[in-house]
Design a protein around this nucleic acid. Structure first.
Lengths: 115, 115
DNA sequence: GCGACCTACAACCATTTGGTTGTACGTTAC
DNA sequence: GTAACGTACAACCAAATGGTTGTAGGTCGC
């Protein structure tokens, strides 16, 4: 997969969206079941509008979606966006493992040469 | 593991540190080998001081470490901090999977009742 | 020893962020 | 029908962020 600029911007948004304890908690809760925004808001020591802003930021990052049911907006997490972030971190770790592997080969080679 | 406030702050720092394309690229590069700060800086269309700030932010998040070699500071990535982020995302995904599993059980139960 | 290279950081600035209060509108329950 | 509930968003403000320029000091190579 070739990473383009729009992919980088999406990654920016996703990681930034989870770089806040309140938003991570919103994500945890909405991963288990749907919550309305005001139901979510009751869990945090801030105004309703502030929680609305957090939800909006998660939505712009593609981490949650909303659907209206009567007067309520129900928020649910989207595991795909979480997987995309995990994938990127997996790639980073793979680069690390690859480096360690290459060092191991060098060491093995040096040991062979010493015999 | 119980997540405490200082853990949350660490998570804030780590996710915020990777919420920027330049810093993700620095992380990719230093995952494969050590780079000096000025060597890194040659890759980005910004001042040396700006790259320095990016490296400092990664360092504060525990994602890279620096060691001095003569006049150069050599930067290397720390895979443990990447793993901590991945772990957190794994937990989120596990919550999703658990929810899907519970829905599957409910559906199976409903089908059993219909027979 | 001195020019080139490398790094650190202060001060500044424009933009973004994260919170508040206030206003407005739609839905629901009685 | 109206009070209660739920939501959206504008305007505001303080703090944080991400970049710049400039100054200063250490190391290295010739």
């Amino acid at each position: 997969m070739v990473v383009g600029r729009s992919d980088e911007a999406d990654d920016d948004r996703r990681f930034r969206a989870v770089a806040d304890a309140t938003r991570r908690d919103i994500l945890r809760r909405t991963m288990t079941r749907e919550y309305s925004v005001s139901e979510l808001a009751r869990n945090y020591p801030m105004s309703f509008a502030a929680v609305q802003k957090h939800v909006a930021k998660l939505e712009r990052a593609g981490l949650v979606t909303k659907r209206r049911e009567g007067r309520e907006q129900l928020v649910r997490a989207d595991v795909h966006a979480v997987r995309r972030m995990r994938y990127l971190l997996d790639q980073l770790e793979a680069m690390w493992v690859d480096r360690i592997d290459r060092m191991g080969e060098i060491l093995a080679q040096e040991k062979g040469d010493e015999s």
